Simulated scan of single mutants.
Amino acid sequence: MYSPALADTPNALAHDRLPQHAPLVAQTRDGLVESVHYGSMIATAPDGRTLLAAGDPLAHFYPRSALKPLQAVAMVRAGLDLPADLLALTAASHSGAARHRDGAERILDLHGLTPAALENSTDLPYGAAEREEWLREGGQPAQLAQNCSGKHASMAATCVINGWPVRGYLDPGHPLQQLIAGTVTDLTGETPERTTTDGCGTPLFALTLRGMARAFGRLASAELPDGAAPADNPEAAVAHAMRQHPAMVAGEGRDVTALMRLAPGLLAKDGFEGVQLVGLPDGRAVAVKISDGGDRARMPVTVRVLEALGVDTAPLARIAAASVLGGGRPLGLLQATDFLPAPEAP
């Protein structure tokens, strides 16, 4: 029920403050559109120019866990030096499998730390199969099982490396978070419009899809010569680790892991509330935000844009659309709409 009092609160949303999203994905059942996901997207050139766009790609939004590769770059710049699988875990929203939990513990152990150093929130494993196994074995919500534990273990480790206090490493005024904020500004080319707190307790910045795409294009196109140390090019080190270990970035059965396996060379990271970023080796990039936070809509949009950019998306068919079933038989599809402008006539 509408309350006039609510309209006077700071959280009241006037219609003209809402992002102007476009219909990007639709689900059909027997020829009728059953539901629609609105959102915004942008594809950028290596120099940051806009190649394709739909909706409101310059509206500020929270990238959520899509920020993790940028946070990982900041930590490598600050001296974090990990094996590639653990660096991939640093940039991960992992499913909470044993390899992920053990990896976070390895990061801590390498730097003389224990799980007591972690300051992220507790949770059950994010992956459905991993969560069921954890519960069968009597597991309870835990910091190591939470999908950001790799990032937090590396944050604590970076503090040890630099002689910074480990306790309180999530405070926005802590040297680690100041370093990360500066790195995010550098990589995106944007000063965050505002700062809040992510679900795991980490400072979170409001940016635009254009800025995030610029950052992912920069990471994906960075090169790390054979034998070079991560510190020689932190952007390349993070991108290389994520591509080399896609199962550490997400997990088995996860679409981000599948995307990097099916299209080698792509750099992909998702974020809660319908966020998807992809960087291409040539420096182009794609950024997607689904307005209702619908996770199922991310990949159909992403694959459609990659196809428009000339990427061979035939191997991605199984993550580009999903069958809609009725009584166990296909009756429709969840698929991208024709949201991209038609090519100009020659």
Rank of each mutant, 00 (worst) to 15 (best):
G39K: 06
I319Q: 06
L82P: 06
L207A: 04
G189T: 01
P172F: 03
A43Y: 09
E130V: 00
L144D: 03
T197W: 06
D312W: 13
G294K: 06
L13S: 10
V256D: 10
M248Y: 14
I161V: 15
A145E: 08
P300T: 08
D16E: 13
K151E: 10
H240L: 15
A117H: 07
T50I: 14
P46L: 03
V76F: 06
S154I: 03
R214C: 00
L86M: 01
G251E: 01
G327A: 15
R304D: 14
G271Y: 08
G253E: 01
T208S: 14
A26R: 13
A321M: 11
D338W: 14
P246R: 12
P125Q: 05
Y2A: 09
A128H: 01
D85S: 05
T302F: 11
A297P: 09
R64N: 02
A239W: 12
A59T: 07
A342E: 13
A258F: 11
P203G: 11
M155R: 11
Q140F: 07
L170H: 07
H111T: 10
P165Y: 13
T122M: 13
T50N: 09
P141K: 14
H240K: 15
H111E: 13
G201H: 14
I180T: 01
V73L: 00
H240D: 15
E307W: 11
H152E: 10
L219T: 01
L331I: 15
R49P: 04
P346R: 15
Q140L: 08
A66G: 02
P315T: 10
L135V: 11
R64C: 01
D186V: 00
K269M: 00
A213K: 04
A59Y: 08
S291W: 10
S323T: 13
P10R: 11
D47T: 08
A297W: 12
D56N: 02
T185Y: 02
G150T: 07
P46M: 04
T90N: 14
L6W: 12
A14V: 05
V275F: 01
A228L: 11
P341V: 09
A142K: 05
A287C: 03
D85K: 03
L113W: 10
T302V: 10
M212P: 00
P57T: 05
L331S: 15
F339T: 04
E307N: 15
G274C: 12
V166M: 09
G227S: 11
C159F: 10
E130L: 00
P172I: 02
G31I: 09
H100E: 06
L316E: 09
R318I: 09
Q146F: 04
R304T: 15
Y2T: 04
L58N: 12
V73M: 02
D270M: 09
T183A: 00
G182Q: 00
A5I: 04
L51F: 04
G112V: 12
G332V: 14
R17Q: 05
T208H: 04
P83R: 05
A258W: 09
P246Y: 15
D30E: 13
T28L: 07
E105A: 08
H21E: 03
V36E: 06
P315M: 12
A45P: 08
